[in-house]
Amino acid sequence: MAEKPVLVLALGNDLIADDGLGPAAAALLAPHLSPQVELKTSAAAGMELLEELVGFEAAIIIDAVKTGAAPAGTIFRYRLEDLSPVAAPSAHWAGLPEAQAVAHHLGLPFPREVVIFAVEAQDLTTIGHPLSPPVQQSLPALVKQVLRELGSSGVRLGPSAKSDGSRLCGSAGGEVFNGFPRRA
C-alpha cells in the first residue's frame, strides 16, 4: 500500500476567475486532512492528469465546471464512471475519462474509485478576476462534503451515493447534486 493511498486533487488555475475554485478549496481543506491523504493542486488538463492519479488507490477530484444547466455555485458530486470517454478533438479537451481509459488499457495502477466534486462556474475566461460571489459562497459546503466523503478516518472513501441520472432540481449553493445534469 502506498504511504498515502488517497489523493485529493484540486484542479484549476487561480489566475482565471472561477477556475481558481480548486486551489481555493485546497487551501481550506489542507488543515483538516489526515496524514493518509495526499493533497495536490494542478492547473494541468487532460492526459497530464493521468500522471497525477497513477499510483493512488482512491481519489477525490475538485474542479470548476460549466454545464450551463445549473446556477453558478451549484455543487455536483459524481463518479468517474458516470462519464464516457469521447474522441477529444484537441489536447485542451482531453478529459479524465480518456485518462482513465488509457490507464486501464495499459494496465497502469489507476485509482479504483474516483469521486468528483464540481462547482458550476460563472466565469472561466477572465484572467485576473477573483472567484465569483456564488462560487466563493459554495466553498464551505464543498469543503464539508469533501471531508464527509473522506470519512472520519480520512482513509476510506465513503460509499458512493446513487446516481440515478435524475434531472437537476433545487437551488444553488450548499446543495449537492449527484451526477451531471444531462441536456435532452
Binding site: G46, D63, A64, P85, V86, G95, L96, A121, T125
Partner: peptide, 21 residues
C-alpha cells in the same frame, strides 16, 4: 481543427469529460 489543434482558454477542461462539439 484537430489538425491545427487550436488552443483555447484552458480553464476547466478536465470536466465533464471532453467538451462537446
Amino acid at each position: 481543427f484537430r489538425a491545427y489543434d487550436p488552443c483555447h482558454g484552458c480553464a476547466t477542461h478536465a470536466l465533464p469529460g471532453s467538451m462537446p462539439l
